[in-house]
Design a protein around this nucleic acid. Structure first.
Lengths: 201, 201, 201, 201
DNA sequence: GATGAATGAGCCTTCATTCAT
DNA sequence: GATGAATGAAGGCTCATTCAT
């Protein structure tokens, strides 16, 4: 419970790496299927097909398992966004691609991702977890091609994320609709100063 | 365990009402200070200065305490927003007033509010809890004075809320700054089609 | 609370088996010494010299501990009676041996046995528990060598058991006396149609 | 829990007497309907339509309520048997009448009666409760008109009771059948030395 | 006398974590 | 290195009993 360093002396053999992946995959599945309250180490060990003792060879405590999961999910998410940023040169197409990347990141195995991050929020300092998102923000430019101020970048990214997050949490039926995606793009671009056409015009 | 109706045979004397308020206030404080995982009935009873038995005279189980809290917080929040809506006739001043109401609703005891709602999400159908927010959305109009489509209203309210929520959770230093409030207003108004002036211009 | 299957994934190693026996023995002792109302899992764990957690590795809940005890006691009882039935060929000697087997089964740790069975009655369908006694009844024959009718077999076995049970519960001083045994034998044999000589003749 | 004297300073007014009867009647009903585990003082107070405080004006503790109930039930039972004994002069008709009285005493509100008595067994010294049955036993005579020895009287009454008790507890379908009554009468009479005809002859 | 809100000891059960094998 | 039996702190909840009103 104390101050959990995030990893044990992990034996760096290939087998260990495989075991670790198995555990994390099982953790994601378990989180997805039973939610945070049902997520317990014994169930995880069983699902992963390892003994509870083995679990504790790879992670010092339960908290660090969730942390590792969150870290992994976040890394995957950033990779996806970066891929998009690398491929698109700019303008509306690029903005739309970013939004789409966000959306997909949020719709696949959403519950596991959300819970992992939420669990981290609840227990650790959220800042170190969220640093990485800054990189993503750096990719945006306003309508004049200027980089965004700190607050503007923050508002932009969190607003878009917030709308998507709410859609997921509230089970919105339009989550994967074109209209929703369009609205998110419009939200971002309007805020950045691009002229936009309200729905229906 | 059954179906947990949400309240016990509560004797409606004045004393009882006071006790109930004390419990809910203590619950909010406790949720705020220790988070959901540390929120337990024994700690709540102690903080409220009542016995554990008394707790269970007023609520059938732990879950319903959180539910009551969520209901109360939501009601207070909506009341605040409605008050604002009633006072302002329209335009930028009104939009700013709404944002300000949101901000204040979110900055005071945010964690308790968020956790209560989150806890409800985890256990009940989230939809019936959120109905109320729709009323708030109805208050908005776009730049042409038209009511918003369902998706637009959703995106708008959740985007603004999401940005504020993130600022709170991440401990942003600009949470109560004028700049942040301005940016939120700008976000909302730009999305609604009002011409806006990007920061610094 | 669910459906309480009667056993956990019990690892069948020797150690586990021993632990289980220890728990059941302690349960019998505890039931014997404090009665059903004082029978609680914490006290049981302490008496068994295991942790409360261990208890719950072997049994899903308190109820199933009592159920297991009842099953075990019944099995032991039936085994004892069957042994007697196998050894004696018939007539008075055999009837007397049966009575004696009953008496001993009932005098050793009677309270535990009775309470375990009673507790089961209170929670389950009593019928499936009692099936086994039917086998015992089948061993009896009336004075003409005919098997007994269902009701007669029932009355015979329950009457004898009832008298013994009462003697135990009421702390009768003659519980293990020859006279009491003789009277029980006489009761059974008279009912079965054998000529008997009333006491003192 | 200590050493419960069985009654409080009961105000001997008629109203008090009525309240007491109401409480005992409610106790019997409650015991009957929910069993011993569900029998709690709060539920009893509610069912009786009195406050929990009033309950404790009439009884020092829960135990004494059950004791009073058991005493009342036993008195009613003895009265019934005595009535029978007064009416019948002897022989088979009288024996049959006694058995019938026993049977009815056991079939009406059996559960409440049984539980009350059982609860007493579990907590008090059973002897003082059962003394009264001796009086009933005194009514029997053997085939030669001689009074029964202590052990014989005990065996007789407890055997008959035991068979009936088992029939009730096990939910025997023949509980109120003529055959069952006949068998009980035959059991008693055979034991007392009367010539009997086994079933079917 | 009656009331019923309040009390709190104590019970059942879970689950993160340890360590002997 | 792995295993999984064992541990026990901690938490949700019940209910007999008290006492201020």
């Amino acid at each position: 419970m104390k101050d959990t360093e995030n990893a044990r002396k992990i034996p760096s053999q290939a087998r260990s790496r495989a075991t670790l992946d198995i555990i994390l995959e099982a953790a994601a599945q378990l989180l997805e299927s039973v939610g945070e309250s049902g997520f317990n180490t014994n169930a995880l060990a069983e699902r992963a097909g390892v003994s509870i003792g083995t679990l504790y060879r790879y992670f010092p405590d339960k908290q660090s398992i969730i942390a590792a999961l969150a870290r992994q999910e976040k890394a995957a998410f950033e990779k996806a966004v970066e891929t998009v940023l690398a491929g698109e040169t700019g303008g509306l197409a690029r903005d739309r691609a970013i939004i789409r990347a966000f959306l997909h990141a949020f719709s696949d195995r959403t519950e596991a991702r959300r819970l992992a991050v939420t669990a981290l929020y609840a227990n650790n300092d959220p800042r170190d977890l969220l640093e990485g998102y800054e990189a993503v923000q750096g990719a945006f430019r306003d309508a004049d091609g200027q980089p965004l101020s700190r607050v503007t970048a923050f508002v932009l990214s969190r607003a878009v994320q917030g709308a998507m997050r709410a859609a997921v949490l509230e089970g919105a039926d339009f989550l994967l609709s074109q209209e929703f995606e369009d609205e998110l793009v419009r939200l971002g671009r309007a805020y950045l100063g691009h002229p936009t056409r309200p729905r229906g015009a």
